[in-house]
């Protein structure tokens, strides 16, 4: 594997808090890599370092083999970045925003015309080309920001929570687009707080308190999950008392709609299910998901050195 994106021992602290604490990962060409973690885990800082917007206090970042903070090296030509904040010019139209970024990358008129037409087509923004960016819906805005980041055909695309504030249909669109780019050989790094989205990535890295807890292909990771998952409905207080008594056998509990999602040690699941049923609660076995994995790992605390290859 020859990585196009490489983060090695990144550490960075702001005045108020530590954001990264030795984060390392690498992404080869043609891979869609997901940085997954709760808000404040350090995802945005990691992406900003890779985009050259922050110089890390420790560790090194490489994009296409170059230091992203070194503007003179031409690294920015191989890098596309889409920030989480609204960063386009709201009073400029869709077409004007695209043209502005095309010119910053010094694309010729012909190249700009061809690429923007294609990008507007695949993002289905053609009809809105003349609309000011501030009047776009959340999903359309993100697609425009994506188009602006793609105009110069970067080898590496960094997306900070691209689906945040986007409706489910547009979300699917966005992922579909990303798969197309990856198929063409682009390396894509996506950050997201949504565990269900993690399963859409080729590989994911679970970020917690500024370091990687776990890394691997989502399906493999979930398949290797050693515990069982139960859905417990009804008899709320008594069910909770049972779970309380079970002690270490219950690994994690999270609310799930009106019910509880309970991660239980596999050898204790039968006994616990029976106890819960005896109290009158409905019990159902669920297929483990990525979210369970995260819950367990985060609950276990950020013990270092757990990142599996």
């Amino acid at each position: 594997m020859n990585p196009v994106v490489a983060a090695d021992g990144l550490a960075h602290a702001y005045a108020a808090a530590r954001a990264l604490d030795g984060l390392s990962f690498a992404v080869p060409a043609g891979e869609l890599y997901g940085l997954v973690g709760a808000d404040g885990a350090g995802k945005t800082t990691a992406l900003r370092i890779l985009a050259g917007l922050i110089v890390p206090q420790r560790g090194t970042a490489r994009v296409a083999g170059l230091d992203p903070a070194d503007a003179g090296s031409g690294v920015r030509e191989s890098l596309g970045y889409m920030p989480q904040r609204y960063s386009l010019y709201g009073d400029l139209s869709v077409a004007e925003n695209l043209r502005f970024f095309a010119r910053l990358f010094c694309l010729s008129r012909a190249v700009y015309a061809e690429r923007s037409a294609r990008l507007l087509a695949i993002t289905r923004l053609e009809r809105f080309a003349e609309r000011p960016a501030q009047q776009l819906s959340g999903g359309m805005y993100k697609k425009l920001a994506l188009a602006c980041a793609l105009l110069h055909r970067p080898r590496v695309l960094l997306l900070d929570e691209p689906t945040n504030g986007v409706d489910p249909v547009s979300r699917l669109d966005l992922w579909q687009l990303l798969y197309e780019f990856v198929a063409e050989g682009m390396a894509v790094v996506v950050s997201t707080p949504y565990m269900d989205e993690a399963e859409r990535c080729h590989r994911v890295g679970l970020v917690h308190h500024g370091r990687l807890l776990l890394e691997g292909e989502p399906q493999t990771l979930v398949a290797a999950f050693p515990e069982s998952v139960l859905r417990v409905v009804g008899a709320a207080e008594r069910a909770e008392a049972v779970l309380e008594r079970a002690g270490a056998d219950v690994v994690a509990v999270a609310p799930l709609g009106g019910a509880l999602r309970v991660v239980v040690r596999r050898d204790a699941v039968a006994a616990l299910a029976a106890a819960l049923a005896a109290e009158g609660a409905g019990v159902e076995t669920l297929r483990p998901s990525f979210e369970d994995l995260f819950l367990v790992r985060a609950a276990a605390g950020a013990s270092p050195g757990e990142a599996a290859a």
Binding site: R48, A51, G52, L53, A71, G74, R76, E77, L79, G80, Y81, M82, P83, R85, Y86, S87, L88, Y89, G90, F101, L104, F105, C106, A145, C148, A149
Partner: peptide, 14 residues
């Protein structure tokens, strides 16, 4: 303040 610089800084503009 509006965050425009974040996307601008990721481009080659000097």
């Amino acid at each position: 303040e509006r965050g425009n610089l974040e996307q601008l800084f990721a481009t080659p503009v000097g």
